[in-house]
C-alpha cells in the first residue's frame, strides 16, 4: 500500500495512525503522535538519537525503518520508561552520575542503555560499549554514561536501593 492506517502500540497505548509509504517510524512518533521525546538527528542511522525499543526490548533506529513495516507492532519510547510518576532506574542513574549534558542525545542514549539492561541487568564493559556505540553523545564522550549504566542496578524505580 502507498497510504493507509497502521496499528502501532506505543508505550502500551494502541494507536491507529494514517501513514504514507514516505514516512518512517520516526516520522510517525514525532510527526503524527507528537511524541517529541524521541529526537531526529541524521536520519541515516549514524547518530542514534532516534533510538526506541522494539517489543523485545532491543534498541532500534526509528529513522531507518519504514512506518508501514511497523503495522501491528509495539515500541517503547523515552516517554514510556517512567512508571507511575517514578523514573526508571536508568533515568535516575543518568541524573545522579551526570550522564546528561545538553540532553539532546539523552532519549536515544537512555533507550540504548535500557536495551542493554533488558538483556542483562549486570552488563559487562563489552556489553555496554557494544550497546552504546550506535549513538553519539557529543557532550559526555560516553564516559559518565557508562558509569550510570554500570550503577543502574543499584536503583529500584528511581531510588537508590
Amino acid at each position: 500500500m502507498k497510504k493507509g492506517f497502521i496499528t502501532l502500540t506505543v508505550n502500551g497505548d494502541a494507536h491507529e495512525v494514517a501513514v504514507s509509504s514516505r514516512h518512517t517510524l520516526l516520522d510517525v512518533l514525532r510527526g503524527k503522535l507528537q511524541l517529541m521525546g524521541t529526537k531526529e538527528g541524521c536520519t541515516t542511522g549514524s547518530c542514534g538519537v532516534c533510538t526506541v525499543n522494539n517489543a523485545r526490548g532491543e534498541a532500534v533506529l526509528s529513522c531507518l525503518t519504514p512506518a508501514l513495516e511497523w503495522d501491528g507492532q509495539a515500541v517503547t519510547t523515552i516517554e514510556g520508561l517512567e512508571k507511575n510518576g517514578q523514573l526508571a532506574p536508568i533515568q535516575q542513574a543518568f541524573i545522579d552520575y551526570h550522564a546528561v549534558q545538553c540532553g539532546f542525545c539523552t532519549p536515544g542514549v537512555i533507550m540504548s542503555a535500557q536495551a542493554v539492561l533488558n538483556l542483562t541487568p549486570t552488563p559487562g564493559e563489552d556489553d555496554i560499549n557494544d550497546g552504546l556505540a550506535g549513538v553519539i553523545c557529543r557532550c559526555t564522550g560516553h564516559i559518565k554514561v557508562k558509569e550510570a549504566i554500570r550503577h543502574a542496578g543499584d536503583y529500584v524505580a528511581g531510588r537508590k536501593a
Binding site: 517529541m36 543518568f94 541524573i95 546528561v100 540532553g103
Partner: peptide
C-alpha cells in the same frame, strides 16, 4: 550537584526547537 534540569532531560520532557510546532 546533579543537574537541576535532569528530570526533564532524562524523561523526554525537555523541549528543543524542533519539538515546537
Amino acid at each position: 550537584q546533579p543537574r537541576l534540569d535532569g528530570f526533564d532531560k532524562v524523561s523526554g520532557r525537555s523541549v528543543f526547537t524542533d519539538d515546537i510546532v
